[in-house]
Amino acid sequence: MKTRLLLLFLVVSGLSCQNRDKTNTDKEPEKTEMTFDKERWRVTNDEAYAYRDKMVDDLINNKKLKKLKKKAILELLGAPDRTDSDYLFYTIRQKRMFILPLQTKSMVIKLKENDSVEWIKMHE
């Protein structure tokens, strides 16, 4: 019982911690968007994609992706993190606690029968 309470306390404490350091306001704000880059799209660090969250808006808004067939999408973006029949799932961002995923943001591409794109949506 004590072990469970201690574990619960640690989990709640870890989730409630936030970096609230506002002392250095002279810094330039971090760039939140970047132009899509095929090589950077595939870069990972600590099992997370380093640049996808900053590039996904450019990728979707460009409309080029919507004109591609499945083969061209795979050449551009690489293998999806998950597939389900005519759906391709690309992980954009994932918040984890240890090995457990807490929140995942994914780009989902729905393909038609002819392997062209039917729609692209973000899923959180």
Rank of each mutant, 00 (worst) to 15 (best):
Y49W: 12
D115N: 13
V117Y: 01
N45G: 10
L15G: 13
K105T: 09
R82Y: 04
K66L: 13
T3L: 10
D53P: 01
I120R: 00
R20C: 09
L77I: 08
E30D: 13
I92P: 00
V117A: 01
I99C: 06
N61Q: 08
I60H: 03
K63C: 08
Y51C: 05
K121W: 08
L6M: 11
L111T: 08
Y51G: 00
E118V: 10
I92E: 01
D84L: 12
Q94C: 10
L111R: 01
E39Y: 09
E47F: 13
T32K: 14
T104M: 04
S13E: 02
L111H: 02
A79M: 09
L65W: 00
A50P: 00
G14C: 10
M107T: 04
W41P: 02
L88C: 06
F9A: 13
F89T: 03
C17A: 08
Q18K: 14
L8W: 08
E113L: 15
T23S: 08
R42W: 03
E75D: 11
L5K: 15
D53S: 11
L74N: 15
K2W: 04
A79E: 12
A50C: 05
T35W: 04
N24T: 13
L10G: 06
M1G: 15
S16P: 02
R20N: 12
E30L: 15
H123F: 11
V108Y: 00
L77C: 08
L59Q: 01
K63P: 01
P101V: 03
K105L: 08
L6V: 10
P29K: 03
H123A: 11
D53V: 11
L74F: 12
K38A: 13
R40T: 00
E39K: 04
D81Y: 00
Q103S: 08
E28G: 05
R96I: 02
L102C: 04
L10K: 09
D57L: 07
K63Q: 11
K112E: 15
K67G: 10
K22T: 11
V108W: 00
L59V: 03
D46W: 05
G14S: 10
L59R: 08
L15N: 05
K2E: 14
L74W: 10
R4Q: 14
R4N: 15
K67A: 15
P101K: 05
R4L: 12
A72R: 13
D26V: 15
S116H: 06
K38F: 04
